[in-house]
Simulated assay, not measured.
Amino acid sequence: MLHPRSFLVSWLLIGLLASGCSSKAPAPAPTPTPPPTGPTTPATTYSNPLLSSGPDPWVYQKDGFYYYMATTGNNVTLRKTAKMSELGNAPATVVWTAPSNGANSHDVWAPEMHFLDGKWYIYFTAGPGSCCGGQRLWVLENTATDPTTGSWTEKGRIFSSSEDFWAIDGTVLEQNGQRYLIWSGHANASTEEQRLYISKMANPWTLTGPRVELSRPQYSWEQQGVLPVNEGPEILQHDGKTFLVYSASHCTTDDYALGLLSTTATADPLVPTAWTKSATPVFVKNPTAGAYGPGHNTFFKSKDGQQDWLLYHANSRPGQGCSNDRNPRMQPFTYRADGTPDFGTPVSIGVALPRPSGE
Protein backbone atom coordinates (compact mmCIF):
# COMPACT_ATOMS: atom_id res chain seq x y z
CA MET A 1 0.00 0.00 0.00
CA LEU A 2 3.11 2.18 -0.35
CA HIS A 3 2.51 4.02 -1.52
CA PRO A 4 -0.49 14.18 -13.84
CA ARG A 5 -2.04 13.25 -17.79
CA SER A 6 -3.11 16.38 -19.51
CA PHE A 7 -6.18 16.36 -21.65
CA LEU A 8 -5.48 17.90 -25.08
CA VAL A 9 -8.29 19.87 -26.70
CA SER A 10 -8.01 20.26 -30.50
CA TRP A 11 -8.92 23.60 -31.97
CA LEU A 12 -9.93 24.02 -35.68
CA LEU A 13 -8.70 27.35 -37.04
CA ILE A 14 -10.32 28.38 -40.34
CA GLY A 15 -8.10 30.51 -42.53
CA LEU A 16 -9.89 32.99 -44.72
CA LEU A 17 -8.02 34.58 -47.58
CA ALA A 18 -8.98 37.98 -48.97
CA SER A 19 -8.56 38.22 -52.73
CA GLY A 20 -8.77 41.78 -54.37
CA CYS A 21 -7.19 40.87 -57.65
CA SER A 22 -7.35 43.22 -60.66
CA SER A 23 -5.74 42.95 -64.11
CA LYS A 24 -4.07 46.37 -63.54
CA ALA A 25 -2.69 45.94 -60.03
CA PRO A 26 -1.04 43.21 -58.00
CA ALA A 27 -3.19 41.39 -55.48
CA PRO A 28 -2.83 42.70 -51.93
CA ALA A 29 -1.23 40.44 -49.33
CA PRO A 30 -3.78 38.23 -47.58
CA THR A 31 -4.95 39.53 -44.22
CA PRO A 32 -4.66 36.81 -41.55
CA THR A 33 -7.87 36.06 -39.71
CA PRO A 34 -7.39 36.23 -35.93
CA PRO A 35 -8.25 33.16 -33.87
CA PRO A 36 -11.81 33.05 -32.56
CA THR A 37 -12.38 34.86 -29.28
CA GLY A 38 -15.96 33.75 -28.58
CA PRO A 39 -17.25 30.62 -26.89
CA THR A 40 -15.91 27.28 -28.07
CA THR A 41 -17.38 23.80 -27.89
CA PRO A 42 -16.22 22.15 -24.65
CA ALA A 43 -14.74 18.69 -24.67
CA THR A 44 -17.29 16.03 -23.85
CA THR A 45 -15.01 13.08 -23.14
CA TYR A 46 -12.06 12.06 -20.97
CA SER A 47 -9.92 8.95 -20.70
CA ASN A 48 -8.21 7.07 -17.92
CA PRO A 49 -5.81 7.33 -16.24
CA LEU A 50 -6.35 10.89 -15.03
CA LEU A 51 -2.69 11.22 -14.03
CA SER A 52 0.37 9.07 -14.72
CA SER A 53 0.79 8.34 -11.01
CA GLY A 54 -1.40 8.63 -7.92
CA PRO A 55 -1.69 5.75 -5.46
CA ASP A 56 -4.47 5.93 -2.86
CA PRO A 57 -6.48 8.76 -4.49
CA TRP A 58 -8.89 10.90 -2.47
CA VAL A 59 -11.29 13.65 -3.52
CA TYR A 60 -13.48 16.02 -1.50
CA GLN A 61 -16.17 18.33 -2.94
CA LYS A 62 -17.02 21.77 -1.61
CA ASP A 63 -18.38 25.01 -3.07
CA GLY A 64 -18.12 23.86 -6.68
CA PHE A 65 -14.55 22.54 -6.46
CA TYR A 66 -12.92 19.16 -6.14
CA TYR A 67 -9.86 18.74 -3.92
CA TYR A 68 -7.69 15.78 -4.87
CA MET A 69 -4.88 14.10 -2.93
CA ALA A 70 -2.82 10.92 -3.25
CA THR A 71 0.19 9.18 -1.74
CA THR A 72 3.50 10.90 -2.49
CA GLY A 73 5.81 9.33 0.08
CA ASN A 74 7.33 12.54 1.45
CA ASN A 75 4.69 15.29 1.52
CA VAL A 76 1.00 16.12 1.34
CA THR A 77 0.02 17.63 -2.00
CA LEU A 78 -3.36 19.13 -2.87
CA ARG A 79 -4.90 19.73 -6.31
CA LYS A 80 -7.95 21.97 -6.81
CA THR A 81 -10.14 21.71 -9.90
CA ALA A 82 -13.67 22.62 -10.98
CA LYS A 83 -13.80 19.54 -13.24
CA MET A 84 -12.56 16.10 -12.34
CA SER A 85 -12.07 15.27 -16.02
CA GLU A 86 -9.46 18.07 -16.11
CA LEU A 87 -7.54 16.94 -13.04
CA GLY A 88 -4.37 16.72 -15.09
CA ASN A 89 -4.45 20.50 -15.59
CA ALA A 90 -4.98 21.33 -11.92
CA PRO A 91 -2.04 23.03 -10.15
CA ALA A 92 -0.42 21.02 -7.36
CA THR A 93 0.15 22.72 -4.01
CA VAL A 94 2.38 21.13 -1.37
CA VAL A 95 0.64 21.89 1.94
CA TRP A 96 2.91 19.87 4.26
CA THR A 97 6.39 18.40 3.91
CA ALA A 98 7.75 15.63 6.10
CA PRO A 99 10.62 16.63 8.42
CA SER A 100 14.07 15.15 7.88
CA ASN A 101 13.68 12.91 10.91
CA GLY A 102 11.19 12.02 13.59
CA ALA A 103 8.05 9.98 14.07
CA ASN A 104 6.33 11.25 10.88
CA SER A 105 9.35 11.76 8.64
CA HIS A 106 8.92 8.84 6.24
CA ASP A 107 6.38 6.90 4.20
CA VAL A 108 3.70 9.57 3.90
CA TRP A 109 0.65 7.70 2.62
CA ALA A 110 -3.04 8.03 1.84
CA PRO A 111 -3.92 11.64 2.82
CA GLU A 112 -7.59 12.54 3.17
CA MET A 113 -9.03 16.02 3.67
CA HIS A 114 -12.35 16.70 5.41
CA PHE A 115 -14.20 19.92 6.28
CA LEU A 116 -15.28 19.56 9.92
CA ASP A 117 -16.63 22.13 12.36
CA GLY A 118 -15.83 25.00 9.99
CA LYS A 119 -12.19 23.99 9.47
CA TRP A 120 -10.18 21.78 7.13
CA TYR A 121 -8.51 18.66 8.46
CA ILE A 122 -6.09 16.32 6.70
CA TYR A 123 -5.55 12.79 7.99
CA PHE A 124 -2.44 11.04 6.71
CA THR A 125 -0.19 8.10 7.49
CA ALA A 126 3.53 8.45 8.25
CA GLY A 127 6.26 6.83 10.34
CA PRO A 128 9.90 7.08 11.43
CA GLY A 129 11.18 4.94 8.59
CA SER A 130 10.68 1.43 9.93
CA CYS A 131 7.45 1.24 7.92
CA CYS A 132 6.00 -2.07 9.02
CA GLY A 133 5.98 -1.23 12.72
CA GLY A 134 6.14 2.54 12.83
CA GLN A 135 3.24 3.79 10.71
CA ARG A 136 0.70 5.93 12.57
CA LEU A 137 -2.09 8.42 11.78
CA TRP A 138 -1.51 12.18 11.92
CA VAL A 139 -3.75 15.26 11.67
CA LEU A 140 -3.29 18.73 10.10
CA GLU A 141 -5.66 21.71 10.57
CA ASN A 142 -6.34 24.79 8.44
CA THR A 143 -8.84 27.59 9.15
CA ALA A 144 -8.67 29.21 5.68
CA THR A 145 -11.71 29.14 3.42
CA ASP A 146 -9.59 27.77 0.56
CA PRO A 147 -7.40 24.88 1.80
CA THR A 148 -4.77 25.59 -0.86
CA THR A 149 -4.10 28.82 1.06
CA GLY A 150 -3.59 29.65 4.72
CA SER A 151 -1.44 27.70 7.17
CA TRP A 152 -1.62 24.05 8.08
CA THR A 153 -1.01 23.33 11.76
CA GLU A 154 0.08 19.94 13.03
CA LYS A 155 -2.39 18.63 15.59
CA GLY A 156 -0.29 15.54 16.25
CA ARG A 157 -1.19 11.87 16.22
CA ILE A 158 -4.72 10.54 16.45
CA PHE A 159 -4.84 7.19 18.25
CA SER A 160 -6.38 5.07 20.95
CA SER A 161 -4.06 5.38 23.95
CA SER A 162 -4.81 1.88 25.21
CA GLU A 163 -4.27 0.22 21.83
CA ASP A 164 -1.55 2.22 20.12
CA PHE A 165 -0.49 -0.09 17.32
CA TRP A 166 0.43 0.30 13.64
CA ALA A 167 -2.36 2.34 11.98
CA ILE A 168 -2.94 3.63 8.43
CA ASP A 169 -5.64 4.93 6.06
CA GLY A 170 -7.81 6.98 8.39
CA THR A 171 -11.23 8.16 7.22
CA VAL A 172 -14.22 9.82 8.91
CA LEU A 173 -17.79 8.58 9.34
CA GLU A 174 -20.58 10.86 10.54
CA GLN A 175 -23.72 9.05 11.70
CA ASN A 176 -26.47 9.68 14.26
CA GLY A 177 -24.98 13.10 15.09
CA GLN A 178 -21.68 11.47 16.09
CA ARG A 179 -18.30 11.35 14.38
CA TYR A 180 -16.06 8.29 14.09
CA LEU A 181 -12.60 7.48 12.77
CA ILE A 182 -12.16 4.26 10.78
CA TRP A 183 -8.72 2.93 9.90
CA SER A 184 -6.64 -0.14 9.11
CA GLY A 185 -4.38 -1.48 11.85
CA HIS A 186 -2.75 -4.39 13.59
CA ALA A 187 -4.43 -6.35 16.36
CA ASN A 188 -1.26 -6.20 18.45
CA ALA A 189 2.48 -5.58 18.23
CA SER A 190 3.27 -9.12 17.08
CA THR A 191 1.01 -9.47 14.03
CA GLU A 192 1.10 -7.81 10.62
CA GLU A 193 -2.35 -8.85 9.44
CA GLN A 194 -4.39 -5.72 8.73
CA ARG A 195 -7.91 -5.30 10.10
CA LEU A 196 -10.46 -2.50 10.09
CA TYR A 197 -11.14 -0.59 13.31
CA ILE A 198 -13.52 2.17 14.38
CA SER A 199 -13.48 4.55 17.34
CA LYS A 200 -15.59 7.51 18.43
CA MET A 201 -14.04 10.96 18.02
CA ALA A 202 -14.14 13.61 20.76
CA ASN A 203 -12.99 16.21 18.22
CA PRO A 204 -11.33 16.05 14.79
CA TRP A 205 -7.94 15.12 16.29
CA THR A 206 -8.86 13.09 19.39
CA LEU A 207 -10.36 9.62 19.84
CA THR A 208 -12.45 8.69 22.83
CA GLY A 209 -13.19 5.19 24.03
CA PRO A 210 -11.73 1.90 22.84
CA ARG A 211 -11.35 0.84 19.23
CA VAL A 212 -13.73 -1.79 17.85
CA GLU A 213 -12.84 -4.30 15.14
CA LEU A 214 -15.23 -4.21 12.18
CA SER A 215 -13.54 -6.57 9.72
CA ARG A 216 -10.61 -8.92 9.33
CA PRO A 217 -9.40 -10.85 6.26
CA GLN A 218 -11.49 -14.02 6.37
CA TYR A 219 -12.06 -14.92 2.71
CA SER A 220 -9.43 -16.14 0.26
CA TRP A 221 -9.84 -13.00 -1.90
CA GLU A 222 -8.78 -10.94 1.14
CA GLN A 223 -5.63 -12.99 1.70
CA GLN A 224 -3.77 -12.75 -1.61
CA GLY A 225 -0.17 -11.51 -1.62
CA VAL A 226 2.34 -11.53 1.19
CA LEU A 227 -0.17 -10.67 3.95
CA PRO A 228 -3.91 -10.87 4.63
CA VAL A 229 -5.16 -7.29 4.37
CA ASN A 230 -8.23 -5.13 4.95
CA GLU A 231 -7.31 -1.44 4.39
CA GLY A 232 -8.33 1.80 2.69
CA PRO A 233 -11.79 2.09 4.31
CA GLU A 234 -14.12 4.63 2.66
CA ILE A 235 -17.69 5.60 3.52
CA LEU A 236 -20.58 5.77 1.04
CA GLN A 237 -24.04 6.78 2.29
CA HIS A 238 -27.15 6.40 0.14
CA ASP A 239 -30.91 6.05 0.62
CA GLY A 240 -30.87 5.21 4.32
CA LYS A 241 -27.85 2.93 4.17
CA THR A 242 -24.20 3.30 5.10
CA PHE A 243 -21.57 1.34 3.18
CA LEU A 244 -17.95 0.84 4.13
CA VAL A 245 -15.96 0.03 0.99
CA TYR A 246 -12.46 -1.26 1.69
CA SER A 247 -9.44 -2.68 -0.12
CA ALA A 248 -8.59 -6.34 0.36
CA SER A 249 -5.40 -8.40 -0.09
CA HIS A 250 -1.88 -7.00 -0.21
CA CYS A 251 -0.99 -4.31 -2.76
CA THR A 252 1.78 -6.55 -4.12
CA THR A 253 -0.81 -8.71 -5.85
CA ASP A 254 -2.78 -8.05 -9.03
CA ASP A 255 -5.78 -9.40 -7.11
CA TYR A 256 -6.02 -6.36 -4.83
CA ALA A 257 -9.79 -5.68 -4.85
CA LEU A 258 -12.66 -3.90 -3.13
CA GLY A 259 -14.87 -5.40 -0.43
CA LEU A 260 -18.07 -4.13 1.18
CA LEU A 261 -19.62 -3.79 4.63
CA SER A 262 -23.22 -2.56 4.93
CA THR A 263 -25.41 -1.18 7.70
CA THR A 264 -28.34 1.20 8.09
CA ALA A 265 -27.99 4.97 8.44
CA THR A 266 -29.39 4.79 11.98
CA ALA A 267 -27.40 1.83 13.31
CA ASP A 268 -24.71 2.19 15.94
CA PRO A 269 -21.52 1.71 13.88
CA LEU A 270 -19.61 0.65 17.00
CA VAL A 271 -21.62 -2.59 17.10
CA PRO A 272 -19.85 -5.10 14.82
CA THR A 273 -23.00 -7.20 14.33
CA ALA A 274 -24.77 -4.15 12.89
CA TRP A 275 -22.57 -4.54 9.80
CA THR A 276 -23.09 -7.15 7.07
CA LYS A 277 -20.02 -8.20 5.11
CA SER A 278 -20.19 -9.22 1.46
CA ALA A 279 -18.76 -12.71 0.91
CA THR A 280 -17.47 -11.73 -2.53
CA PRO A 281 -15.46 -8.72 -3.75
CA VAL A 282 -17.39 -5.85 -5.36
CA PHE A 283 -14.68 -4.56 -7.74
CA VAL A 284 -11.86 -6.67 -9.19
CA LYS A 285 -9.11 -6.57 -11.82
CA ASN A 286 -9.86 -6.41 -15.55
CA PRO A 287 -6.73 -7.42 -17.49
CA THR A 288 -8.29 -6.74 -20.91
CA ALA A 289 -8.86 -3.12 -19.79
CA GLY A 290 -5.35 -2.66 -18.39
CA ALA A 291 -6.58 -2.62 -14.79
CA TYR A 292 -4.61 -4.69 -12.29
CA GLY A 293 -5.03 -4.43 -8.52
CA PRO A 294 -7.86 -1.85 -8.56
CA GLY A 295 -8.54 -0.40 -5.14
CA HIS A 296 -8.06 2.26 -2.46
CA ASN A 297 -11.01 4.19 -3.76
CA THR A 298 -13.08 7.27 -2.97
CA PHE A 299 -16.39 8.69 -4.22
CA PHE A 300 -17.72 11.95 -5.64
CA LYS A 301 -20.82 13.43 -7.28
CA SER A 302 -20.88 14.91 -10.79
CA LYS A 303 -21.01 18.71 -11.12
CA ASP A 304 -24.80 18.66 -11.53
CA GLY A 305 -25.24 16.20 -8.66
CA GLN A 306 -26.95 13.64 -10.88
CA GLN A 307 -24.24 10.97 -11.11
CA ASP A 308 -22.22 8.96 -8.61
CA TRP A 309 -18.57 8.38 -9.48
CA LEU A 310 -15.90 6.00 -8.25
CA LEU A 311 -12.27 7.18 -8.11
CA TYR A 312 -9.64 4.47 -7.58
CA HIS A 313 -6.09 3.49 -8.43
CA ALA A 314 -4.92 0.58 -10.56
CA ASN A 315 -1.80 -0.65 -12.31
CA SER A 316 -1.73 -0.67 -16.11
CA ARG A 317 0.35 -3.86 -16.34
CA PRO A 318 0.59 -7.02 -14.26
CA GLY A 319 3.20 -7.34 -11.52
CA GLN A 320 3.64 -3.61 -10.80
CA GLY A 321 2.59 -4.07 -7.19
CA CYS A 322 2.75 -1.22 -4.66
CA SER A 323 4.83 1.20 -6.73
CA ASN A 324 4.07 4.70 -7.99
CA ASP A 325 2.94 3.11 -11.26
CA ARG A 326 -0.49 2.93 -9.67
CA ASN A 327 -2.55 5.64 -11.35
CA PRO A 328 -5.92 7.30 -10.60
CA ARG A 329 -8.98 6.42 -12.67
CA MET A 330 -12.65 7.28 -12.47
CA GLN A 331 -15.94 5.86 -13.70
CA PRO A 332 -19.63 6.28 -12.87
CA PHE A 333 -21.56 3.72 -10.85
CA THR A 334 -25.17 2.98 -9.99
CA TYR A 335 -27.17 1.21 -7.30
CA ARG A 336 -28.93 -2.13 -7.47
CA ALA A 337 -32.57 -2.72 -6.58
CA ASP A 338 -31.53 -3.72 -3.04
CA GLY A 339 -29.72 -0.39 -2.59
CA THR A 340 -26.17 -1.74 -2.74
CA PRO A 341 -23.65 -0.02 -5.03
CA ASP A 342 -22.88 -1.59 -8.40
CA PHE A 343 -19.37 -0.53 -9.42
CA GLY A 344 -19.28 -2.69 -12.53
CA THR A 345 -15.82 -3.54 -13.86
CA PRO A 346 -12.77 -1.29 -14.41
CA VAL A 347 -13.07 0.55 -17.72
CA SER A 348 -10.32 0.45 -20.33
CA ILE A 349 -7.43 2.89 -20.29
CA GLY A 350 -7.02 5.28 -23.19
CA VAL A 351 -10.64 5.00 -24.32
CA ALA A 352 -12.76 8.15 -24.72
CA LEU A 353 -15.54 8.15 -22.12
CA PRO A 354 -18.33 10.67 -21.37
CA ARG A 355 -17.34 13.29 -18.84
CA PRO A 356 -19.24 13.60 -15.55
CA SER A 357 -22.58 15.27 -16.20
CA GLY A 358 -22.53 19.02 -15.68
CA GLU A 359 -18.97 19.45 -16.92
Rank of each mutant, 00 (worst) to 15 (best):
T252Q: 04
N176Y: 10
G177C: 09
A202M: 08
D268F: 06
L196R: 05
P269K: 04
P332I: 00
W166F: 13
T125G: 07
G150S: 01
D308H: 15
N75L: 01
Y121K: 09
S22M: 00
S52Y: 11
A202F: 09
D304G: 09
N176C: 09
G150W: 01
P49I: 03
G185I: 05
Y68W: 14
P287E: 06
P32G: 02
F300Y: 15
T298W: 05
G225L: 10
L173W: 10
V95S: 06
L244R: 08
T81H: 03
A18L: 10
V59E: 12
A257G: 08
W275F: 07
S22F: 02
G129V: 02
K200R: 15
S357T: 09
G319F: 13
R317M: 15
L50I: 02
E222G: 09
P147A: 00
E234M: 13
P228Q: 09
G118N: 08
P32R: 01
N297R: 00
V351N: 06
P354V: 02
T143K: 11
L311T: 07
G344Y: 12
R79F: 09
A110R: 01
F65S: 15
P354F: 03
P204N: 09
E359S: 11
P228F: 06
A189N: 13
T264D: 14
A110V: 01
M201C: 09
T298A: 08
L2F: 11
V59H: 04
A289M: 03
F65G: 02
Q135M: 12
K24L: 09
E192M: 11
I14T: 08
G73H: 03
G127I: 00
I168Y: 01
N142V: 04
G88E: 06
L207R: 10
K80L: 07
A98W: 08
A27K: 10
Y256R: 07
A43Q: 13
T263V: 05
